[in-house]
Nucleic acid binder design. Structure first.
Lengths: 252, 252
DNA sequence: AGTGTTTATCGTCAGGCAGACGACTATGAT
DNA sequence: ATCATAGTCGTCTGCCTGACGATAAACACT
């Protein structure tokens, strides 16, 4: 019986963002410290309400811009400088997920290159990049000895789902380049895979694989020694989005 | 600025269902004929409002039961007889997707074995299994010569996304068994892959692949000749959910 | 009873790709 | 000059897949 006016209750609809980047060989996510109850003082994912005239992806892109200054290039939007990959992740609507009211949150996943310090309404103290293991471990201690409180709401679940999506998606797509600056070396791309998967990869087999996949990497002609050692070729991301055959994640 | 009460507008939240099955060697979806405006008389996906005290997956399972009589076994629910696979697909929230009001729809994907005739509130004329190509082609003619009007709302997009999810997911998971009855033969499973992908597969290589993947199929000891020809072994779905290495979909 | 048809199942073989790893190159640091 | 670091090119072996031949066990005819 669709659309019987007495049959539906109003919901609040929000977007939450899992913004991932690779910093210092670790997969990190953007976390915001909550300034008000509930969960005051706890870390949470950035997010906010969807506006009445906004599509979900627009709302996610707007939040991403507000929190990080990144322009998202979704599949339907033109690519931009300093852009990030943005895609819908999943929707969370447990009736008790927000103690105040019924909130349905459409989570999005954003992948960005390493950035300068985050900003959150000018308050640098209330936003940070944190390794995802630190954010996900329950009741342990972070690297700085600070007690690691669980994330607010069901954000640990959302973050976990986002990380798993990223881990599996770089297997069969060229998405790992979204973690890299516009020009990058094969070694830098390999370190992205190593950080996201948390494993070590053989540099020689990795080089053979990525340079041998048509459309994955396009040489720019330049070289760099910013990682030390012998100069490495610079590449841009090629047009291919799907990797066939995929990059296999080592098991166990 | 989360949760400023003046900052959010109420939305209606619905679940829509992409219910897929394999009938007569074709991938079919459940379609409901709309009895009221807008899009009166057009075909649409089954769905309905999420109730105030219901989780999204509960709402989807309830709608599935109402429309088909199937009990969903989601990953967190116990398996049941006559059960179907159910998972969240994606969420659609374009401000204009429903002309009457702002509706955010959380689409779910259900996979079911071939069933008896569908029911829709007792009105058999308003629900049917239709090949997905018939539902997705715009302005053509269905097999029975009937003008094929596009699906209501953005349901063609939702159905298309659901079909693509199913097509890709049976590559790397054991999900194709969700289209089969509790006991099935290798040939029946192969016909599922052929119908979902729309290609012909080599029976010998397929047999080697599925019987050689540990945990995919468990022999029950029985045999059947319901497909004609030499008796075939019967199998149940094994415990494995991920196929490694995957079943590769032939390209082109 | 024999013949053809259908479906299932086992085997063989060649090519492609991945993991393991050796060898060499080009830079900066000591 | 030597070392450490990182990048790049090869080789070899084993596994998996695609392409197919061959056999097996049922049913439907004649």
């Amino acid at each position: 019986m669709p659309y019987d006016p007495s049959a539906f209750a109003p919901f609040a609809v929000t977007v939450d963002l899992v913004v991932l980047t690779v910093r210092r060989h670790a997969l990190c996510a953007l976390a915001i410290r909550r300034g008000e109850p509930p969960f005051q003082g706890r870390w949470a994912l950035p997010g906010g309400f969807v506006r009445p005239d906004e599509d979900l992806s627009q709302a996610a892109a707007r939040e991403l811009m507000e929190e990080t200054g990144l322009c998202a290039h979704a599949p339907d939007a033109p690519a931009q400088a300093n852009g990030a990959h943005l895609e819908q992740l999943a929707t969370y609507g447990d009736p008790k997920r927000d103690p105040r009211m019924r909130v349905v949150s459409v989570a999005h996943l954003a992948l960005a290159p390493d950035l300068p310090a985050p900003r959150a309404g000018g308050d640098a103290n209330s936003a940070r990049w944190a390794p995802v293991e630190d954010l996900l471990q329950q009741g342990g201690y972070g690297r700085d000895g600070e007690q690691a409180a669980p994330l607010a709401f069901d954000h640990a679940r959302i973050l976990s789902d986002g990380v798993e999506r990223a881990r599996s998606k770089i297997e069969y797509s060229s998405l790992a380049t979204a973690f890299c600056p516009p020009e990058f070396t094969v070694g830098e791309l390999r370190r992205v895979y190593e950080a996201v998967w948390g494993v070590a990869l053989d540099p020689r087999n990795f080089h053979r694989k990525v340079t041998g996949t048509p459309g994955f990497l396009v040489p720019t002609g330049g070289t760099t020694t910013r990682q030390g050692g012998r100069p490495a070729q610079l590449f841009r991301a090629g047009g291919a989005t799907l990797l066939n055959p995929p990059m296999l994640r080592p098991e166990v």
